[in-house]
Nucleic acid binder design. Structure first.
Lengths: 339, 339
DNA sequence: GTTTTTCATGTTAGCGCTAACATTTCATGT
DNA sequence: ACATGAAATGTTAGCGCTAACATGAAAAAC
């Protein structure tokens, strides 16, 4: 008794069906689809006709299994709710798309443990490379990358240990915007921080360094909350800050959400911005140019970071060296009414 | 001469290696990982130890190929830059994650042709099902789904043709917010529309229906632009609208970006909102509760749509019937200062 | 005209896993 | 004691594709 045939995936048309229809061998079909220049014009055409006629869709799983290349890249980001990472994704997408790669998006929710689990889970897909947000990760993270010989590019910040990275100095950016507030004559400059991820902490370091240099650092002017940031939280933090330190004359908020919340609240309170209180944000999101008063902030090249990081990763995957293993894309102060 | 061995993917540890280390057959390892209740406690433990010791990561490709199930779902959305779809994704993610499914995200950039290409490209991964934004698609789209016997759930809107869908009536929502403006005594209510996707056009239909019912529809009060919407565009469209029709006394903007831009511009112009001009948006994004004056808008249950749609899809994949093939999750008017 | 090289195509085997069937083990009923 | 069936484990084959090698035909070199 013959055994029951297995179910087939997809519409059931395989490369062999195409080959039979075109009167060639399977490998020829494979070559027409993957290295067309290796096949003569005549056969190429015949095969393509058969592909169209049968509506053949090749199976990525079979291809990955046979070739040990998945043409897939894993992208690890901390949040899908933050425009910053979405614009980075958009940049990555354009490059990968053009190269025939697909991206797997792993959202770690700002949690190093979850990030590690994501990496493990997505390794099942045998990605050819990984794009990673941030430099510091849970313990066995780097070791796993190493074991699997996975090319990796780190995004958003700059590493000093030889890891391939594309970004800008979060610390320098934090220092720069703080110096701007100093240049406006402010001396009791506060810091509002939420989420408290790696990048926020570095901006905080930059803020501290700038104030130390100016001799007016005051630890009592830092307000930090590990919760995710939101406009509501910015408003609440402003209330708390003014209650504790009514002498505060400027605020550097670790991102624009917080800053817009604080700005909005100070408008409600009738505070004179920027005279009584200057406010600066970080990232230059769309609403920052539109709120009243318009928000001073730091524009970050997140889309370009995505593009450059993806390009560098593709080079690494192909065994080449990227143009630079440490690409500093800089940042730009956007000086507006709120300061 | 023996032929050169092939390269291996990943770290090179296979299920057979684990099986040998644990002193069992490969299929037992497979069962420990996939149907653990079928294996005795003792063996299960021995196998798990071997898995950990060797840091074994199963290959999804091999599994997909052998079982004709990819445990993967394709999600088609029109944009990654729009919070609305991201929150939908977040809802989908929670459900799929819990069920051990992974999602492939396809971004069509609001282009039906690109959407079709995405579907074709992602079919290579043999997804077990598809979550689709919107009801109308390029020609062979539905046929392809059919050919591949792909379970599909449509999101954001309600179909009348038996397709499984989760959403709310865009048309009814557009009508409801328009009736609200009418109830505020407005009679020359304009419509600002951008992007002009399917959902915007249905909101427009609802707006027209409500005005027809009240006997004050005026085709000269509709301003439509196929470009992607932005705050800038909202501001520009407000200028154009007031220049053409200074008698306009209310505006329904097809989304909050446009509305905030228009609101901001009318503040700059010193217009009295809502007395001289009432403004309403759509979606209830975060800034809408924070701009001045706060924005009247329609809150949409996008996260829940994601959750429900994913749940329904999982049922369809398992060959069961979802609770409802047409889940109406409703919407909510958020009445604020701008009206 | 013969050898060498190049190019186009084919044959074979195997990537790592799981469905289907086969076998063994052991508890249960009679 | 033995049949009966359920539970646990194993054997075999094959999912659909491509790397490696093999072959044949045409072009280039001598």
């Amino acid at each position: 008794m013959p055994r029951k045939p297995r179910v087939r995936s997809g519409s059931g048309v395989t490369m062999h069906d195409v080959a039979k229809a075109a009167g060639v061998s399977a490998i020829t079909v494979s070559r027409v689809l993957n290295q067309p220049q290796q096949v003569s014009e005549a056969l190429r055409e015949k095969v393509m006709q058969a592909v169209d006629a049968l509506a053949y869709v090749p199976s990525r799983s079979a291809s990955t299994l046979a070739s040990a290349r998945s043409r897939t890249v894993l992208v690890l980001i901390p949040s899908l709710a933050n425009t910053v990472f979405l614009e980075t994704l958009a940049g990555i997408e354009t490059v990968l798309d053009a190269a025939g790669y697909q991206m797997l998006i792993g959202n770690s929710h700002y949690d190093a443990g979850q990030e590690l689990q994501l990496l493990r889970a997505y390794l099942q897909h045998r990605p050819d490379g990984v794009l990673i947000t941030g430099l510091s990760h849970a313990e066995p993270f780097e070791r796993i990358l190493c074991q699997h010989a996975l090319p990796a590019v780190y995004m958003m910040d700059l590493a000093d240990d030889g890891r391939c990275c594309v970004g800008f100095s979060q610390e320098e950016a934090g220092a720069a915007i703080t110096r701007h507030l100093l240049s406006r004559g402010k001396r009791r400059i506060g810091f509002l921080g939420a989420q408290l991820d790696e990048r926020v902490m570095k901006r905080l370091e930059g803020y501290r360094a700038a104030l130390d240099a100016a001799g007016c650092r005051d630890a009592g002017l830092e307000w930090l909350d590990p919760q995710p940031s939101s406009m509501q939280m910015g408003a609440d933090m402003l209330d708390a800050a003014l209650a504790q330190r009514p002498d505060c004359d400027a605020l550097f908020c670790c991102n624009d959400d917080l800053a817009i919340g604080a700005l909005s609240r100070s408008q409600q309170l009738g505070l004179d911005v920027p005279e009584r209180l200057a406010i600066a944000g970080f990232n230059d999101l769309q609403p920052s140019a539109w709120c009243t008063p318009t928000l001073t902030t730091v524009a970050t090249p997140r889309r370009d970071i995505g593009v450059h990081a993806a390009q560098a990763l593709l080079k690494l995957i192909d065994g080449e060296e990227p143009e630079s293993r440490r690409a500093d894309l800089g940042f730009q102060l956007m000086l507006r009414r709120s300061s």
